[in-house]
Design a protein around this nucleic acid. Structure first.
Length: 544
RNA sequence: GCCCCGAUAGCUCAAUGGAUAGAGCAUCUGCCUUCUAAGCAGAGGGUUGCAGGUUCGAGUCCUGCUCGGGGUACCA
């Protein structure tokens, strides 16, 4: 509906011989006396045209064609707003549109089938996923779902490194637990991984191989068993959130394929690196990324993390993605400018790369902070969180705040108040509608019978119709910003508008015609609720 | 020191530069003979951290502070 009004305003501007290339802003009015939509175009143009905004607004309004079935009236309000009051008939049409598109209502084709990749989680397999990883996992998967919904073909990729120092320490940790199980009094140090899972891995090695590896602390079995067990756990945990990666990328392959050396060589050829104190430095400053950084260490003969990161991102570009989304926690915000600078140094444009930085999760239990380090034993895993509150609540909580906000997750609250959780509010609306629809079948209403939509005219009904209309805008907005949070606000609003409608108006009544029209309406609401919940990966139950 | 994010109701958070800043939780008051009360209606609760600036108009943009979180490694 907004697009249509924009077109009409644009036409009016042309008629007035006013050039205006920016988007014509149309907002949903917050207050009923301001109509349904409001345009500030006259205020925006005022200073440029050196004309009072009220006059411009009036001129625009006077050029609007009469169409009583769409626009009831147009009011000009000081200091220069143009307020549109939409006719009920225009809102009533939305029901037809929703029912026609059904599961696909709200989709658009911004992506036009282009390839997108979302890389997220990317935790090295040193331990179970934490609650902090959970936020990133849910954010990444939801962004991927939004992109798919908006016409992209999306790959979900998990990047990891199983060769570094942390993995060696992991193996040693398993070995020490193994020794303890054999009766030795070896002790873990602060350096080692303390979690119970280490002991379990050690026990399984003991069960399978006995004391065969006693004295072989560097034996690969310790590290490999740990990696396999941890990765299996990570995969299973994510699967419980309905998050499935279709691609895993091992950093090691960058070395095996010679890409690390290759990138380093090409950077040198392009004069993007220099040697100092035996190390190879990258001229990050020259490419707009702040201070120069070491790419290749002198104290040890190996790369810093930046070099494989650059090589890895080059593969993303070479793999033909039109849109590349990187999701990082706030602790990694300093690394991506170097990567982008590195790509530019290699001659690439980086505007197809979108980096999303999300802030941390503060986990509390009854007001007390819980530290979330994989190294320490005392932390809450993502798996435990899912077991406590369930997939739907986890997904909703992690997405209900903007990614730039710190997220406060009180475990005690999430547990004790799970019955009053906002996610149930949305699901309840869906279940209620399903209940009505079951009742309709019992009363002999046919699914295919369409009602007379002009009967949908009460205040609460029109509010519901208007909210349905908003869904497409929210979807489009989310696909542009890659911020899923507004979807939760929208769904909450839709559910609230429905619940209010429900308490005021009875869907199935003796008035057969009105009942048919209202059934069409609630069917449409159900589709939009279900589509929105599905975008968030939250189930839409038919009964509760 | 420098860089990034935040600061809005008692708490957790919304609000593409728009009109009288909104929800949930918590606290009070009402509403189930009726398609699901996991719901609805109502009340109280605010100098949007501080000080300037930009303009028709600022919670939003700019500058400087204060406080909190994260970076600033030849750790990832």
């Amino acid at each position: 509906m907004i697009e249509y009004l924009q077109k009409l305003i644009s036409q009016a501007l042309t008629d007035l011989k006013i050039e205006y290339d920016d988007e014509i802003v149309l907002e949903r009015a917050r207050r009923p006396e301001h109509g349904h939509f409001t345009a500030n175009i006259a205020l925006v143009l005022s200073s440029r045209l050196r004309k009072p905004p009220l006059r411009i607004a009036t001129e625009i309004r006077d050029l609007f064609p009469e169409q009583p079935d769409l626009i009831e009236k147009i009011e000009i309000a000081p200091p220069g707003f143009i307020n549109f009051f939409i006719a009920p008939a225009a809102f009533q049409k939305i029901v037809t549109q929703v029912l026609a598109k059904g599961d696909n209502f709200g989709r658009n084709d911004i992506g036009r089938g282009r390839k997108a990749q979302v890389e997220f989680v990317s935790a090295n397999p040193t331990g179970p996923l934490t609650v902090g990883h959970g936020r990133q996992a849910v954010l990444g998967d939801t962004v991927a779902r939004i992109l798919e919904w908006n016409g992209y073909v999306v790959d979900r990729e998990y990047y990891y490194n199983d060769a570094g120092r942390q993995m060696r320490i992991l193996g040693q940790s398993v070995y020490i637990r193994y020794r303890q199980l054999l009766g030795y009094d070896d002790e873990l140090t602060k350096e080692h991984y303390q979690g119970e899972y280490i002991r379990e891995i050690a026990r399984s090695i003991l069960d399978q191989h006995g004391d065969k590896y006693d004295g072989q602390s560097d034996h690969a079995i310790f590290r490999q068993s740990a990696e396999e067990a941890v990765f299996t756990d990570i995969r299973d945990t994510l699967a419980e959130l309905d998050i499935v990666f279709n691609s895993y990328y091992n950093e090691k392959s960058l070395y095996e394929d010679g890409l690390i050396d290759d990138v380093l060589k090409r950077l040198a050829e392009r004069g993007a690196t220099y040697e100092k104190e035996g190390a190879i430095w990258f001229r990050a400053g020259k490419y707009g990324a702040g201070d120069d950084r070491v790419l290749w260490k002198s104290v040890v003969d190996e790369a810093t993390y930046r070099l494989p990161d650059i090589a890895y991102h080059e593969t993303k570009i070479k793999r033909g993605y039109d849109l590349i989304v990187d999701i990082f926690g706030a602790d990694h915000h300093a690394t991506y400018p170097d990567v982008l600078a590195g790509l530019q140094a290699l001659g690439y444009e980086t505007d197809r790369i979108r980096v999303l930085i999300h802030q941390f999760v503060t986990l509390t239990r009854g007001g007390e902070k819980i530290k979330m380090s994989t190294r320490q034993a005392n932390y809450v895993t993502l798996r435990e969180l899912i077991e406590e509150v369930g997939k739907n609540v986890v997904r909703y909580f992690f997405i209900m705040r903007g990614m730039t906000s710190h997220l406060n997750f009180d475990l005690a609250l999430a547990k004790t108040e799970s019955d009053e959780n906002p996610v149930f509010y949305l699901q309840y609306a869906h279940a209620r509608i399903c209940s009505i629809l079951r009742n309709a079948v019992a009363k002999g209403f046919n699914d295919d019978q369409r009602g007379d939509l002009s009967l949908l005219a009460e205040e609460e009904t029109l509010a519901l119709l208007s909210t349905l209309d908003e869904f497409s805008e929210v979807c489009r907005n989310c696909s542009e910003t890659l911020e899923p949070q507004p979807l939760t606000s929208f769904l909450h609003k839709l559910a609230a508008t429905f619940h209010k409608f429900y308490t005021v108006h009875r869907v199935i009544s003796k008035d057969r015609e009105l009942s048919k029209a209202r059934l069409d309406l609630v069917r449409a609401v159900r589709f939009v609720l279900a589509n929105g919940l599905n975008l968030l990966g939250i189930s839409a139950p038919e009964r509760m």
